[in-house]
Design a protein around this nucleic acid. Structure first.
Length: 378
RNA sequence: GCGUCGGUGGUAGAGUGGUCUAAUACACGAGACUGUAAAUCUCGCGGCUUUACGCCUUCGUUGGUUCGAAUCCAACCCGGCGCA
């Protein structure tokens, strides 16, 4: 893999680049579609191409459970398996350490709401999984079976899955973790990062190291400095920052400032429309988020006019498209009324169409930001 | 006409003397969701207000029995089924 920076903004840390992989070139900044189980839920692979999606991220933990990495490899790797001809990355399973651990225990997501006072102290373990120096003992959400995933295991699985970019195995710490827990966690993530580098054999794949550190700037910097000094092909930023959105750019800038400038940066799991600007200004090249697909299934469309709740009765009267400024086929061919009807009637097609639109919309938004960087507007 | 069964909140459907504004589901309404255990979850859903488990009003209608009725009795109205 090769990363070429075409332009650096003078107004911010934003950069325009080309990420060249064995399966094609990605224009950055770029929104990465989340295809956890080797599919963007409700869309065919051809549909995903038509949304303008340049790259997908699939998941080690989930593909390991079903259908199993050996089966994927037997079908020629994840690209061939799902018929996707463009670049792909795989998440290492590090996020599941959080989502199936403390995330489940406390019913919180990776980004915390105000007013939360619970904390996780150093030495505490999640109820359903166990984090040790070697890795994590999980319980399968499919059937409850025990399974173990550590840095070595994750890399071995990711090599079989065969994405263009793989991620180091990390612990995505809970946003409830206190300073000491975080410190211990990132130290372990650093050790795991080395093991991942040593374990990796496939030279065609690129591997990103992952920076954690939560909401503490010193830990973020320390982690970025340590991981950034390791011979990874790029870097991913994980976890939460615990700050208001206005402070996110500053926080991201100071973290990214510790990473080698010439290598690509991926921000894991952030990508609501309103996040694009500060992330890109801070120097993020790629980022993924479940929002367009997840929200679509739950009835929210992202449009240039803001969010639209698809089940609202009032939409049934509206003859205009979801987003009059959008040129996706959903906005060209269907009315809000029809889409609202599909949602209210519980028809899958509604979720399909809005998923398509949401993805198209975010891809287009990223494209607009690339234009802005080109024109020196941002 | 006779017999019989039944009429409960937007719908379906529990409840058969007090713990009933009345289970549950659906529908409806409002929120949430940021490396997906998520086509999910939470809350509300008779009215009013000092938002308290406070008051008022609801289980076809009208009366009655009872300290107390959606629940028992009577008449009436409506519906299903059976027999004429």
């Amino acid at each position: 893999m090769e990363f070429e920076i075409l332009k650096k903004s003078k107004k911010s840390k934003a950069r325009l680049g080309l990420l060249k992989t064995a399966n094609g070139v990605v224009e950055t900044p770029c929104f990465v579609g989340v295809a956890t189980k080797a599919t963007i839920k409700t869309l065919s692979t051809e549909d995903v191409e038509r949304t303008g999606t340049q790259m997908l991220i699939s998941n080690t933990f989930h593909l390991h459970l079903r259908p199993g990495e050996t089966l994927v490899k037997g079908h020629g790797g994840v690209h061939k398996f799902m018929g996707w001809k463009r670049p792909m990355m795989t998440d290492s399973g590090g996020f599941q350490v959080f989502s199936l651990g403390f995330g489940t225990d406390h019913g919180v997501g990776k980004i915390l709401k105000k007013g939360e006072e619970r904390t996780i102290e150093e030495g505490m373990q999640p109820q359903k999984i166990k984090i040790t120096e070697k890795g994590v003992e999980f319980r399968s959400p499919v059937d409850g079976a025990k399974l173990f995933l550590g840095p070595k295991e994750s890399i071995a699985i990711q090599e079989k899955i065969g994405a263009d970019i793989i991620l180091a195995f990390d612990e995505c710490p809970s946003p409830l973790a206190d300073y000491e827990y975080m410190k211990t966690s990132i130290a372990r993530t650093h050790r795991w990062a080395k093991i991942c580098l040593d374990a990796k054999k496939n030279k065609k794949q690129a591997m990103y190291g992952i920076v954690q550190g939560g909401k503490w700037e010193d830990l973020r910097k320390e982690c970025a400095h340590t991981i950034g000094a390791m011979p990874f092909d790029g870097f991913a930023i994980g976890g939460e920052f615990g700050y208001e959105k206005e402070d996110m750019e500053k926080m991201l800038r100071s973290t990214l400032g510790e990473l080698p400038e010439e290598k690509p940066r991926h921000l894991l799991g952030v990508g609501h429309p309103e996040d694009f600007e500060y992330m890109i200004r801070a120097g993020v090249d790629t980022f993924d988020c479940i929002a367009p697909t997840h929200y679509a299934r739950h009835g929210t469309a992202f449009t240039s006019g803001g969010r639209i709740y698809m089940k609202k009765t009032s939409l049934l009267k509206e003859k205009k498209p979801l987003d009059p400024k959008c040129s996706c086929y959903v906005c060209k061919n269907y009315t809000r009324s029809y889409l609202a009807h599909l949602y209210r009637a519980g028809e899958y097609t509604g979720m399909h169409l809005v998923t398509f639109h949401n993805l198209y919309y975010l891809n287009n938004l990223a494209k607009e930001f690339r234009e802005k960087i080109k024109k020196g507007l941002i």
